[in-house]
Design a protein around this nucleic acid. Structure first.
Lengths: 277, 277
DNA sequence: TCGTAGTGACTACCAAGGTAACTACTATTG
DNA sequence: CAATAGTAGTTACCTTGGTAGTCACTACGA
């Protein structure tokens, strides 16, 4: 990640970003020096430093009658930004939620572009309460791994099926299943990505790397159930075939540990605190 | 907090904010309807909705060949924003910190405007490791209360002295001391706000409500020690006078000659009342 | 004279806000 | 049946403010 791009995303202008970086590596500079190191025209530098001072990102000190400038350390800068959005969230969410009207019947909504599909998947995982099913390729699963971990910490039953070559960073979760297929070509058509929560909400996506990525997201009950059941069947068959490979007989007994997918959590399954194995 | 202002702070344009709010309270609208509810000129509405769709804040569905629009729910929207800044932080801080050069000797830095003083105080509290001293009026102490709570959770020894009328939301901490004084007028001059951490960093501020607010922030060792010691002495005297009150010892008369340090030639009592725990 | 320090007056460009006028379709009603 | 009003969407153009970028100037000390 280019630092300048990152700072732009924090709302810095290009000059502000360049001045900040220049001040970081050359602390205590006069305006003139900052202009020299940053390549910002001298005619603009005081304006730029002024707006950074107003934002509290740069502070001044006096020495020999000259004004020196000092950059806020990066940790503090980013901590402030995070704190600001968090405070904004705490202020805004209740007001906005009060404004929001309920949709009469859940629409079948189209989501466009890859990052929006990932964001939608994160939403669903982050709001799941009891049961969560995920099926997709490692790239997409990895992108929502932080949220999946949080969900498991919240005691959400989380089932994940990952297609493709076994990834290096594969977490050791109880219900993590791998379809080890060479590459994205093996199974027909484009990649897919399915997230379903609580038999209530689902996202069925086609995370093509290009700009063609599209997904369906809905709280439509039928779709949500189909998505969940599809993944359940997939897992069931995967396990069945594995065990048949090993033994050959009496599948029912061997697959009993999967019954919780359909019948909810049983006492014997309450194996821990979100860190099984 | 006005919702529109809040959304602007999230990087929405005014039209985008108005369209989003209109869509929240009227879900599933055509572009035409959104324009009607939001007051955005029809000529602009598709452009605006388009950029919201591109950002994933609005999604579309089809019904009778018409494109309907649906707003992302506020919790998800704000969760995404928070996650985005957090990811930016994790990416950016290591790179920026690597760029940062150490200042040879800690400067005496001037901080301007009230919010920047508060932000600086938050920085210091958030990075304190062992010992923390805070002295100020309730307004300012309240503004950094969240960070103080975090510091206490990190096992930082936290001492707070609050001037002014006892606030309603006063936390019940072990080292929380109150100087109950009627109003900001009693002690001469403007309000003040002191934060000192680890005998290493200090902020000494003058949080005037207007634009005149100024503070000194520094890692200069001498200043940091003076600030810490000042607050320690203040607490010591406060406690001493409380305990003497309890035991019926009254030195007012014997120390009357010192009262002039604080009150000129008037003789009156110190406000210590022992409302700590 | 050169390097440091700071300022005023420009130009260029673009995103955002704002207006007017247009097409096309549907439903209602006199 | 034609006229009208409302819905749905589009093209063109204009204004404004902020950002980027240039040039030319003053002032000072070594």
């Amino acid at each position: 990640m280019d630092v300048l791009v990152g700072l732009l995303q924090l709302g810095f202008t290009e000059y502000e970003a360049r001045a900040y970086v220049a001040l970081l590596s050359n602390p205590g500079g006069t305006g003139y020096e900052v202009a020299k190191y940053s390549g910002i025209p001298r005619a603009k530098i005081y304006e730029v430093l002024g707006s950074l001072v107003a934002r509290g990102v740069v502070s001044t000190s006096q020495s020999d009658g000259r004004a020196l400038h000092h950059a806020l350390d990066p940790e503090s800068l980013l901590r402030r930004q995070v704190g600001q959005v968090e405070r904004l969230r705490d202020d805004l969410v209740p007001v906005l939620s009060a404004l929001a009207a309920q949709e009469v019947l859940p629409p079948l909504v189209t989501i466009k572009t890859y990052p929006n599909i990932i964001a939608g998947a994160r939403d669903i995982v982050a709001t799941a309460r009891r049961q969560l099913f995920v099926s997709g390729w490692w790239n997409e699963v990895e992108a929502i791994l932080a949220e999946l971990t949080m969900a498991r910490k919240r005691k959400v039953d989380t089932y994940v099926v990952v297609y493709g070559e076994a990834p290096p960073a594969r977490p050791r979760w109880r219900h993590w299943y791998s379809h080890e297929i060479d590459n994205r070509r093996r199974i027909s058509g484009p990649p897919w990505f399915i997230v379903a929560a609580d038999h209530a909400e689902a996202l069925i996506g086609e995370p093509t790397p290009g700009s063609r990525a599209v997904a369906l997201r809905t709280r439509n009950r039928g779709v949500a159930i189909v998505a969940s059941e599809y993944i359940k069947h997939d897992i069931f068959l995967l396990e069945a075939s594995r065990i048949m490979d090993e033994k050959g007989i009496n599948l029912n007994h061997d697959l009993a540990h999967l019954q919780s997918m359909w019948f909810g959590r049983r006492d014997s399954d309450l194996g821990g605190d979100g860190s099984d194995e």
